[in-house]
Design a protein around this nucleic acid. Structure first.
Lengths: 247, 247
DNA sequence: CGAGTCATTGATGAACTTCAAAGGGAGTGG
DNA sequence: CCACTCCCTTTGAAGTTCATCAATGACTCG
């Protein structure tokens, strides 16, 4: 439990604003799936690649006009909505290759905010252009429907999570989700650094900081998890899945 | 607190399988919003109107191949998913004019089941045709994106509901949601019959039957709500909104 | 009219929250 | 480079809310 930094692969991206969808390592995870080379080039033309955002910088805020969705290129984001009384609810975490910003589609206004958890960069995909282009490219339209559908099923799984599962089940599921998404990006499924605080995890999973911390401690005591601050190692994947009720 | 039946407007629909989107009273709530007459006619051609479904009949089941979404024409539906251990989680209730079945879009398989809560009917909208047609009709594409986006924001509001709110707040919000949707369909916002059981409400809101029942009783004692089994009357809308934390 | 489901109400208990306090880490400025 | 500060994390003790268990009553529909 010593390593501070794990493979800083995002760096390359930060220094290369010229990368296009065809060359992007994330291509196979992101929008371009199922597009052929010519189609990817067309997609490429509507995508805007911005400067990196520093930690705690907002991508958009609740109430902002909606005009684009964003593909996370590097780093990570937290999406959250703020109630009238100021309390916040984290609605999702977004890792490279995932699409953030779809909360604004229905009303053309963002009903949540998105903020970086670390230095991050995105590809901006103007929604109007995406609509237009997807009328020409059936597989792009298909793909975007699929991505929106996935957001729906993800949220519905969270509903079950929040309404039925205990604190241990929720935390275990959360860790497995991060693990699986890392694995999907060819990173370690068993060892990674959490870019979010205990409080943010707790908020997302409907728990308090203290409860999350206690669960982490218990999992560590049972030697299922190795924890060093935000550095995490899954020592017993089977046991963790057992706890999370995964078949 | 006596009336058993409230305006049975759906009946007319049941007896008329020939109604088309252009004539449907629900048009302005449903998919056709923002389409002109010619466009509605085109939509009409891909829509299949089926026989009415009786109470407790399934529209689709978890695991079924996905090939269409459905517009509720009359009655009401419950969507729910079943875990490996057999426990069920209600993921939504669907009233006339609302679209059900989008849970299958991402994987082309339904990951939840849909069942009627009473005699009901739907318009089946084959997804492939909808995709095709929406490539020709920008406003239809726009509209469908909007509907999917709304499902996303609805689910995210539920997340906040489940993770932050007390039993009273949840039940109050639920009643207000049904009230608003009724009002939207030009039905009474203050008096209606719930087509779902206490257990189903509880399951949806992450509570037990007993808790839901107790909240109903308390609201009745405070003269905020009139309750006669599934017949409900909101006596003090302001107080109910107060409880639900609505601004 | 009878059987079964649904709703209500009470008593008890468990899980998580809240309140409180102290121990690291990371980043900043001197 | 060190020291200071602030925030994050951890752990303990007490308190609440809601779940669970249990029993009765009411409604619905064959």
């Amino acid at each position: 439990m010593s390593a501070l930094m794990i493979a800083s692969e995002p760096k390359r991206c930060h220094t290369n604003g010229l990368v296009n969808c065809g060359d992007c390592r994330l291509g196979p995870l992101c929008l371009p799936i199922a597009l052929n080379t010519a189609e990817v080039d067309q997609l490429d033309e509507i995508v805007k690649r911005g400067r990196p955002l520093i930690k705690n910088e907002h991508l958009y805020r609740q109430g902002d006009a909606f005009h684009a969705v964003y593909a996370v290129r590097s780093g990570s984001f937290k999406a959250y909505s703020t109630a009238d009384d100021g309390t916040e609810q984290v609605t999702g975490f977004y890792l490279p290759g995932e699409i953030i910003g779809m909360d604004g589609i229905s009303s053309m206004k963002h009903c949540s905010s998105a903020v970086t958890l670390e230095t991050s960069s995105v590809c901006e995909i103007p929604f109007a252009s995406l609509g237009e282009l997807s009328r020409q490219l059936p597989s792009l339209q298909q793909r975007f429907f699929q991505i929106m559908g996935k957001e729906i099923t993800k949220d519905q799984q969270m509903l079950t999570q929040l309404s039925k599962n205990s604190a241990e089940e929720r935390v275990a599921s959360f860790l497995l989700s991060v693990s699986a998404r890392n694995h999907h990006r060819n990173l370690s499924a068993t060892r990674f650094r959490l870019s979010m605080s205990r409080a943010e995890i707790g908020n997302y999973m409907g728990l308090t900081v203290e409860t999350v911390s206690r669960v982490f401690s218990r999992l560590q005591k049972q030697e299922i998890l190795g924890v060093d601050n935000r550095e995490v190692e899954i020592l017993d994947m089977a046991a963790l899945k057992e706890i999370a009720n995964v078949a």
